[in-house]
Amino acid sequence: MIFDRWIEWLPALLEGLGVSLALTGCVALVGLPLGLVFGLLSTHQNRLMRTVFIVFIEVFRGIPLLAVIYLLYFGLPSGGITLTAFVTMVIAHGLNLSAYSSEVFRAGILHVGPGQREAFASLGITQTRGFFHVVLPQAMRAVIGPMMSLLIMVFQSSSLAYTIGVGELTSKAFSIGAMTFQYFDVLALAGIIYAVICIASSRIASNVEERLKTGR
C-alpha cells in the first residue's frame, strides 16, 4: 500500500522540510533587510543613486533564480571562494528576494501620502526621525500582505536548492525516488507537503491582509 510507504518515508521528508524552512528563514533574514535598503535607495532624491539601484533591481528581477544559483555555485570556487551549498543558496536566493521585496517596500513607502511628511515637518520633527517614526510604521502595514505572499514564493523556490544538493525536501524526495524507483509515490508526497503548507499559509496571509485593509 502506498500509505505504508508514505509513513516509512515521512520522517526523512520532514527532516528535509526542516531544511527547506530553515533555508526560507535565512533567505528572509538576508533578503528583507537588503530589500528595505534597496527600496529606500531606489526612492533616493539623488537621481544617479536612484537609477543605479532601479537598474540593479530590474536586472535581478529579470534573471531566473536558477541562473544566479549556478553562477555563484560554479563561479565562486574559481575565484577562490568556496562556500557550502546551503550558504550559496542563501546568498543567491537572498539577492533575488531583495530585488522583489524592494519593490514591495518602495510601493509601501510611496503609499504613505505626502500629507504625513508635511504634518511631521510642521511639528518640527526631523526628516530621519519622522521617517522612522511616522512613514515606516505606516508603510509596514501596507507591506505585510504582499510580503507574506513573497515568502510563500521563497518557500516554493527553495526547492531549487535540489539542483546543488542542499538536503531539503525536494532533494530528500528525489534521492528516495532514486533508491526505490518509486519516483511518483515519493514526489507526490513531497508535493502534498509543499501544497499543504503553501495553501494554509496563503489563506492566513489573505486573512491578515483583509484584516489590515479594513483597519484595526
Binding site: Q156, S159, L160, Y183, F184, D185, L187, A188, G191, C198
Partner: peptide
C-alpha cells in the same frame, strides 16, 4: 487551482518527468 499553484513548479516537472514516465 490551489494544488497546481501550491506544489512548486520544479516538483511538478519532476513528478511528470520521473513519476509518470514508467
Amino acid at each position: 487551482i490551489d494544488i497546481c499553484r501550491g506544489v512548486p513548479p520544479l516538483v511538478w516537472l519532476l513528478i511528470i518527468y520521473y513519476g509518470i514516465s514508467p
